[in-house]
Design a binder for these strands. Sequence first.
DNA 1: AGCTTTCTACGATCTTTCTCGTTGACATAC
DNA 2: GTATGTCAACGAGAAAGATCGTAGAAAGCT
Lengths: 125, 125
Amino acid sequence: MPPLPTGAELEILAVLWRLGPSTVREVYAALDKNSGYTTTLKQMQVMTEKGLLTRSERYRSHVYEAVAPMEDTQQQIAGDLLRRAFGGSAANLVLGALKAQPASDEDLAEIRRVLKEFEKRERSR
Amino acid sequence: MPPLPTGAELEILAVLWRLGPSTVREVYAALDKNSGYTTTLKQMQVMTEKGLLTRSERYRSHVYEAVAPMEDTQQQIAGDLLRRAFGGSAANLVLGALKAQPASDEDLAEIRRVLKEFEKRERSR
DNA sequence: AGCTTTCTACGATCTTTCTCGTTGACATAC
DNA sequence: GTATGTCAACGAGAAAGATCGTAGAAAGCT
């Protein structure tokens, strides 16, 4: 089982999820950090060594891409936090998230949809 | 704004939330890590320096306690993760959490209650 | 060919986190 | 009063993470 991505790694992953396969420079530009280009480059190299990213040549530059699908990584992170910080209480996690960043009506509807879906699957077991 | 607790710090906080004010030895016993007693002690001393814990004398030993209420810390953590790993999508967070650790019926009901409550507050603005 | 730009690769440093061994204080037991 | 046990304090070390400076390869331009 791969270790969870660190904070800086997570930010890079988030950019790649959003933009799809990208060069280092594109990721660097999308990051609003005040660290240098080589820092981002190094980070992505390390992540590639770890197996978090893959790299393919394209003309002159290298294009990086997340190995694991976003959903898998998000699930791992959510599960880890649930255990570690919320004593396994999903309700507390939801509550914390909503308080921290009020959700829009669409978000709320989406959450309800997710709940229904989950409930249905649960009931059929 | 205080920096978010690290992984090891979070585990200690979780124990203190669960047990209430405790001595180092109690926390250490509740932790199922394979590190030594002094490691936990040192960690808690550092956390006290950082302002995460408070300490009060009790007879011979010291009793530690989390400074910030659990809810506040959880909210901070959830918000941070929401931004960093989930692109602000609370629905994805909920989905990830449910997939990672299927919730019981009570949990689901609790989540729905939280949603309703939040919605009501939202509507009255 | 020589210069400029745009990349990646490498190595070094700095900081934070994590871990533990040792010490000394204090109390209780013998 | 010596021994034993329990605890906090201290300092040191290892490990991981984050940051950057410099070098080197490849392409394009004049």
